[in-house]
């Protein structure tokens, strides 16, 4: 089967003091090729842990991940990552950052340059290709990160709050870019976010996770991503169904946060 399946993943961290944290409990989900899944949930519900397991940086205590009929045992080039920040290589120019994956594969220079140039055009950074990455704004840096990930032609792109460090306006532009890239490249994307609006706008599907133990609380199929491609995202946000779903999810997460607070207050 082509696509990605998460099969009964559980993750428990044993702490040095003898206690243990159940970060994930029996999480399962299936993604078809080309789907865009956004993941929401209160802080500490195991979103990053799930993504790290998908990327192969962590081995789950139970369950397995299967991608294109292969079980994940470690990191691999078929799963690209986009981090919130700090993952670009400061000692390389924009061009070298984007070309990193092809270069590691030993791709010929001409071909590599072609890919890099194309992607720099796509993310609109052609004029900055010889600049150092620390000379760019936060939004530009995230565009470099996206381009670097795409240059490697991964099957699945994993994003952990990729737009979390950006201001509202830049963020909106970048959301449009993510949608455009998703549609043009047809990649499977898993996107973690803290913004309910972003999750609704970008996710074809959406899971809301609950904490302690981390698990999938509710799943949605959403029409907004399709609508948003090439359209004005602000128009999409204005629709009534968007506002309804947003409010429903917001109050759901709000309740979970309340519960956590109540529980910690009770225990302390």
């Amino acid at each position: 089967m082509s696509g990605l399946s998460v099969e009964n993943i559980s993750m428990r961290f044993d702490l040095p003091n003898g206690a243990s944290v159940q970060a994930l409990q029996d999480v399962s989900l299936q993604l078809k090729e080309g789907e865009l899944l956004s993941v929401l949930g209160p802080s500490g519900c195991g979103k990053t842990t799930l993504l790290n397991i998908l990327a192969g940086f962590l081995a789950p205590t139970e369950g397995r991940i299967v991608i294109n009929n292969h079980t994940v045992t470690g990191p691999g080039a078929e799963r690209g990552m986009v981090f919130q920040k700090g993952a670009l290589f400061e000692w390389m120019s924009v061009r070298e950052n984007v070309g990193f994956g092809p270069r590691m594969k030993g791709m010929a220079n001409a071909k590599k340059n072609e890919i890099v140039n194309h992607l720099l055009d796509v993310v609109g950074l052609q004029d900055f290709k010889e600049k150092a990455v620390y000379e760019l704004s936060g939004g530009m840096q995230q565009r470099v990160a996206l381009a670097r990930c795409l240059a490697n032609e991964p099957d699945v792109i994993l994003m952990d709050e990729p737009l979390g460090a950006l201001d509202a306006l830049t963020r909106e532009k970048m959301q449009g870019l993510v949608l455009k890239l998703w549609k043009e490249t047809g990649k499977t994307i898993i996107l973690i976010t803290h913004s309910v609006e972003e999750a609704l706008l970008l996710g074809e599907r959406l899971i809301v996770m609950a904490p302690r133990p981390g698990r999938i609380h509710k799943e949605y199929e959403l029409p907004f991503a399709e609508r948003g491609v090439g359209a004005d995202l602000r128009e999409v946000k204005k629709s009534e169904s968007f506002a309804e779903t947003r409010d429903e999810i917001l109050s759901m997460i709000w309740d979970m946060e309340e519960e956590i607070m109540g529980r910690t207050e009770a225990t302390s």
């Binding site: 990327a55 990191p75 080039a77 700090g86 993952a87 000692w91 990193f100 590691m104 490697n152």
Partner: peptide, 29 residues
């Protein structure tokens, strides 16, 4: 070294030797 950089390099298909050469060494300079 920021662990994100190492993770990013692995996800971009770099081997251990390549991570040493292209990430760890320049990052420690």
């Amino acid at each position: 070294v920021n662990i994100s950089k190492i993770h990013a390099a692995y996800s971009l298909g770099a081997s251990k030797a390549q991570i040493m050469r292209h990430v760890i060494v320049p990052n420690s300079l």
